[in-house]
Simulated scan of single mutants.
Amino acid sequence: MTEQSTPDELGDLPGDFYGYAHLLSPDERSVLARVRRFLEERVRPIALDQWEKAEFPHHLVPEIAELDIAGLAVDFPDRKAAGKLFGSFIAAEFARVDASIATFFGVHTGLAMGTIDQCGSDEQRDRWLPRMRTMEAIGSFGLTEPNGGSDVAGGLHTTARRDGDTWVLDGAKRWIGNATFADLNIIWARDEADGHVKGFVVEKGTPGFTARKIERKTALRTVQNADIELVGCRVPAENKLAKANSFRDTGRVLRATRGGVAWSAVGAMMGTFELARDYAVTREQFGRPIAKFQLVQEHLATIVGNVTSSLGMAVRVAQLQDQGIFRDEQAALAKLFCTTRLRASVARAREIFGGNGIVLDYEIAKVFNDAEALYSYEGTREINSLIVGRAVTGLGAFV
């Protein structure tokens, strides 16, 4: 038996039908097993209640910090940057148990830390990233605006104006995860002087910065999304990110995180398959488990096929990122394909649950709703389709 096929403490997830997790090293699999135990023991028991109440479990943040998995893509003196494949499997583990906590973690460690790592000066990285790694400082990422979603590149209206040793920000942002309690808020604004989009770190408590929780959501309810208002918000010049000077710099961050959403979809699909399979083998109708009926098995086979094809694509995405040859269209294809397969999978799973599928106690209703958010954010299916279409035809069809 080869080392890769030797059982270890991680075990095999039912949704990982081809055993892709065996591509990780033994040490990485050990960390992944520790993360899985934490999520099962500390997150899953409270996930439904937190989702129903639309409240965030702040008490878990120090416990997540103890896992030392925030900012795995960042180089620190005592911890070298990990491979993208390893970090991606961890992201999938979060989404397998709860897409809301996965989104919180992804915004903090991917979007916020990733922006500072890629776009900050050495001094800025040293100032903020160590505290973000220990999660003493939580980050948010403010790009989307009330009237600018898919058209955010051309329709970004938040402005930045240099005034002596400060920058003055005015505008609004919407759907900004973590922003109601974040310590460091990445805000993208258009410089009035040259028209270019630039990045700023707005620290908690800065006058002129207001974040209000978005209420009455039907997906990712645990995530504290906010409407942000910036009114004469003065940011010190040293908080302007040194290497965030155009939307092209913003795009470098989004290219990496769009691939991350594909992994979130994979994780959520794994969780979907496990819930549906476990229910099917225990739920009895007509004197037998419903898993013995052909149509139910067809649902399960289709779901696990969706997981497997999406996971294979996501693994290749991570490998291309590690090789430094990952392209925009590859990120777009992964995001649109995996989230579309997730949407189809949760619909089939909910069907297996029958009427119980709309009751929160059975978990699948939460996953069903959360899938809608993953399907839409980080670029809609339509926009990502056009990115791929432009790549394969050489012709743009955006307008």
Score class of each variant (00 low, 15 high):
residue 7 P to D: 02
residue 9 E to S: 08
residue 11 G to N: 10
residue 14 P to G: 00
residue 16 D to P: 00
residue 22 H to N: 12
residue 28 E to F: 07
residue 28 E to L: 07
residue 31 V to H: 00
residue 32 L to S: 03
residue 37 R to K: 10
residue 42 R to C: 00
residue 42 R to D: 00
residue 42 R to S: 01
residue 47 A to N: 05
residue 51 W to F: 11
residue 52 E to L: 10
residue 55 E to T: 10
residue 56 F to T: 03
residue 58 H to K: 09
residue 71 G to M: 02
residue 73 A to N: 10
residue 74 V to F: 06
residue 81 A to W: 04
residue 82 A to I: 05
residue 82 A to S: 12
residue 83 G to P: 01
residue 85 L to G: 11
residue 97 V to I: 15
residue 108 H to A: 05
residue 113 M to C: 03
residue 114 G to P: 10
residue 122 D to I: 13
residue 124 Q to N: 15
residue 131 R to L: 14
residue 132 M to Q: 09
residue 134 T to M: 02
residue 155 G to Q: 13
residue 167 W to A: 06
residue 170 D to I: 06
residue 174 R to A: 15
residue 179 A to Y: 01
residue 179 A to D: 02
residue 192 E to A: 07
residue 193 A to D: 08
residue 206 T to H: 00
residue 209 F to W: 01
residue 222 T to F: 05
residue 226 A to W: 01
residue 230 L to W: 04
residue 235 V to Q: 08
residue 240 K to H: 09
residue 241 L to N: 11
residue 247 F to N: 07
residue 250 T to E: 01
residue 251 G to M: 15
residue 259 G to R: 13
residue 262 A to Q: 02
residue 273 F to I: 10
residue 279 Y to R: 02
residue 283 R to F: 12
residue 287 G to A: 04
residue 294 Q to G: 14
residue 296 V to L: 02
residue 298 E to N: 15
residue 313 M to F: 06
residue 313 M to Q: 13
residue 317 V to A: 08
residue 319 Q to G: 10
residue 323 Q to K: 14
residue 329 E to M: 11
residue 330 Q to D: 13
residue 331 A to R: 01
residue 332 A to D: 13
residue 333 L to G: 00
residue 336 L to Q: 15
residue 339 T to A: 06
residue 345 S to K: 07
residue 367 V to H: 10
residue 375 Y to L: 12
residue 376 S to N: 14
residue 383 I to C: 13
residue 390 R to N: 11
residue 391 A to W: 12
residue 397 A to E: 15
residue 397 A to M: 15
